[in-house]
Design a protein around this nucleic acid. Structure first.
Length: 424
RNA sequence: GGAGAGGUGGCCGAGCGGUCGAAGGCGGCCGCUUGCUAAGCGGCAGAGGGUUAACAGCCCUCCGAGGGUUCGAAUCCCUCCCUCUCCGCCA
């Protein structure tokens, strides 16, 4: 949620910033202004009536104790109450409308974010590693996975439908190795490991911005009114909702491995082969809860922490800064990390690192008490560190050999307890 | 799932339908006292909102959440959420 006071005080600025995402968003600002004006008008009336009621009710108490007649006053208060009830009904409606509207307005892009309409206008920031030259035609990971008997798409589909895959044998162990490797690396850097619930309440989804706008992308357990998390960002970031932290508690660094569940509504036809786009995939997530004045340096180090995984794995990658039009709903600024896929001859996203500033903190009501004693919203950041399934796919492709076997990256050998994964 | 108990300020814990945003204790902050520490004394401290130049003043709301009764509710009634105890079931 963006600060309504900012909308009130600098509506043109807010419109200008939102327009860099999508020009149609500026209308929403005018709607907010209108509703907010009405809301405050009603509040002023209700409150003065309430003050009057309070005074008169106290008066009644006093007179009664003195044994005097109060029926006339009581009648007055009854009328005031009716008036209050009417106004409160209006207020409830206006507030509800305003809230619904506010929850659907995305975060303002940071001024440093390049303006652009879609992913084609994202800006490459840096590259690391050289894509390997193969002496043969590199196979796509799904072919390698099937040849090695570690990826089973048919049985996955039998069990749960398309975009579900069964990982087997050394493939499963490689995946588990990646998870452990990533968690070990991040916890050494000071991130605290967490195992959160994978099912959360609607208001938790609202806190990080998945709801109300992206309901169709989520799996919901109707009977219990719970949602499956699409990323560990959701439970981790919400961990301190409705809390006032101490300044010295910041920054808080968290990491978690969880499966992620996404309906992938609207992505029909994209990445239908392989494990790039699955309804369920594993991810190790990084979350930071930080002092607002330091969130941008924290974003840079967050990206570095995620990059470190790929460096140690020896996978070529690049870092891309998302343009305004490609930015996610809650983010002010985002870097994507993309790893090289030889079979596709291009880089594919394995991590997305965002600074959400106080956008999520407002929704979750997570604050801290600063040195002058004022309560302020924290800034929240999140980043994949990394998407495990995609990293596995990248390893299969980048480390493949002509005979179909796959070399295990050096840093994973102790975890996997093998140097090579061979067919059979 | 069944039976019972309970949810009050950073923590513990009182609270008669009106004078309660709430006693008291602990913890916190600021003074004073004081070789140091400890103790003692005095004072200050909740959250959100409206008005406003204002983190001043005034006003409104908040005692798990939401409804209701009442002239008036932390106190009475209903629903929900959560916690604890016992029983049942269970990895």
């Amino acid at each position: 949620m963006i600060d309504i006071e900012l909308i009130r005080k600098k509506p043109e600025y807010v419109k200008e910033r939102l327009a860099t995402r999508d020009k149609s968003l500026t209308d929403l600002v005018d709607q907010v202004l209108d509703l907010d004006g009405r809301r405050r008008g009603i509040i002023a009336k209700v409150e003065s009536l309430r003050a009057e009621r309070n005074r008169k009710s106290k008066e009644i108490g006093k007179l009664r104790r003195e044994g005097k007649d109060t029926s006339a006053l009581e009648e007055e208060v009854r009328h005031i109450k009716e008036e209050i009830d009417r106004l409160e009904e209006d207020l409830r409606k206006v507030r509800e409308d305003l809230r619904k509207l506010m929850l659907r307005i995305p975060n303002l892009p940071h001024p440093s974010v390049p303006v652009g309409e879609d992913e084609t206008q994202n800006v490459e920031v840096r590259r690391w590693g050289e894509p390997k030259e193969f002496s043969f035609d590199p196979r796509p990971h799904w072919e390698i996975g099937e040849m090695l008997g570690i990826l089973d798409f048919e049985r996955g589909a039998t069990l749960a439908g398309s975009r579900f895959t069964v990982v087997k044998g050394l493939g499963a162990r490689l995946e588990r190795a990646l998870i452990n490797f990533m968690l070990d690396l991040h916890t050494e850097k000071g991130y605290r490991e967490v195992i959160p619930p994978h099912l959360v309440r609607p208001e938790i989804m609202e806190g990080t911005g998945q709801l109300p706008k992206f309901e169709e992308d989520l799996y919901r357990c109707d009977r219990d009114d719970l949602y499956l998390i699409p990323t560990a960002e959701v439970p981790l970031t919400n961990l301190f909702r409705d809390e006032i932290l101490r300044e010295e508690d910041l920054p808080i660094y968290l990491t978690a491995y969880t499966p992620c569940y996404r309906r992938e509504a609207g992505s029909h036809g994209k990445d239908v082969r392989g494990i790039i786009r699955q309804h369920q995939f594993n991810k190790v997530e990084l979350v930071k809860i930080v002092h607002p004045e330091r969130s941008y340096e924290e974003l840079e180090s967050l990206v570095r922490d995620a990059e470190e995984v790929l460096r140690l794995l020896g996978l070529p990658y690049r870092v891309v800064e998302l343009c305004t039009g490609d930015l996610g709903f809650s983010a002010s600024k985002t870097y994507d990390i993309e790893v090289w896929f030889p079979s596709q001859g291009r880089y594919r996203e394995v991590s997305s690192c965002s600074n959400c500033e106080d956008f999520q903190a407002r929704r979750m009501n997570t604050r801290f008490k600063d040195s002058s004693g004022r309560n302020r919203f924290v800034h929240t950041l999140n980043g994949s560190g990394l998407a495990v399934g995609r990293t596995l796919a990248a390893i299969l492709e980048n480390y493949q050999r002509e005979d179909g076997s796959v070399e295990v990256p050096e840093v994973l050998r102790d975890y996997v307890k093998a140097d090579i994964i061979s067919p059979g």
